[in-house]
């Protein structure tokens, strides 16, 4: 069964964040961050709701969401692995880490695992140049990576309860292209 998103709830969540700035356009990025974090994607229906609440056109919401690397409207995994590709991390050996990550997660860069749990991406400098290679997994930073440690870190994420609990419908990725299906 296709995931069903509770858009009424989504609207409430959008209103809640937007209320902090009195429904000013300035809350667009905080709103998009909230939706992205919760639903892992931002579909056209969600964009329409955000546009309604903030009094702008949905195209503008789309324009902003697609501009920022962390607001990618495409549905992504519950854990987004972002490996730093900048020169300091390159000198520190990012290529080996990239291969290991790809192998352990079973996906290439720019891909999301079939179960919707993991995404793998490149990221630009994350300010850990003295401790490279570095990566972010959602908001958590991992530094001084070695291929061995990568294997352990990936295992740790796979063991986390969030990686196993069947997602509530509203937490499923929003866009229809994603092959993820709800268990219940």
């Amino acid at each position: 069964m296709r995931p069903v998103v509770d858009y009424a709830r989504l609207r409430e969540e959008v209103m809640e964040v937007a209320a902090l700035t009195n429904y000013n356009r300035a809350s667009l990025i905080p709103v998009l961050r909230t939706v992205k974090e919760k639903y892992r994607g931002i579909d056209s229906e969600a964009m329409q709701i955000i546009a309604d609440v903030l009094g702008c056109h949905p195209v503008e919401v789309n324009a902003v969401a697609t501009f920022y690397a962390f607001l990618n409207p495409k549905p992504e995994g519950r854990f987004i692995f972002r490996l730093c590709r900048t020169y300091s991390c390159e000198l520190a050996g990012k290529e080996e880490i990239a291969k290991q990550l790809s192998r352990n997660l079973g996906i290439g860069f720019g891909e999301t695992s079939a179960d919707g749990m993991f995404s793998l991406e490149w990221a630009n400098c994350m300010g850990m140049c003295d401790q490279g290679p570095a990566m972010l997994v959602n908001d958590e930073i991992h530094t001084k990576l070695t291929p061995n440690r990568v294997a352990v870190i990936v295992q740790d994420y796979k063991k986390r309860p969030e990686a196993h609990t069947p997602a509530r419908a509203a937490e499923q990725p929003l866009l229809g292209e994603n092959p993820v299906e709800c268990e219940s």
Binding site: R25, L28, A63, F67, Y68, A69, N124
Partner: peptide, 25 residues
């Protein structure tokens, strides 16, 4: 504290302001 969303160009001061106002940086 206002959060950015992953764009190098937002370190440029007018792009930073655009971003704070809810626009593309």
């Amino acid at each position: 504290v206002a959060m950015g969303a992953g764009a190098y160009v937002c370190g440029e001061e007018t792009a930073l302001i655009e971003s704070l106002e809810g626009f593309r940086g």
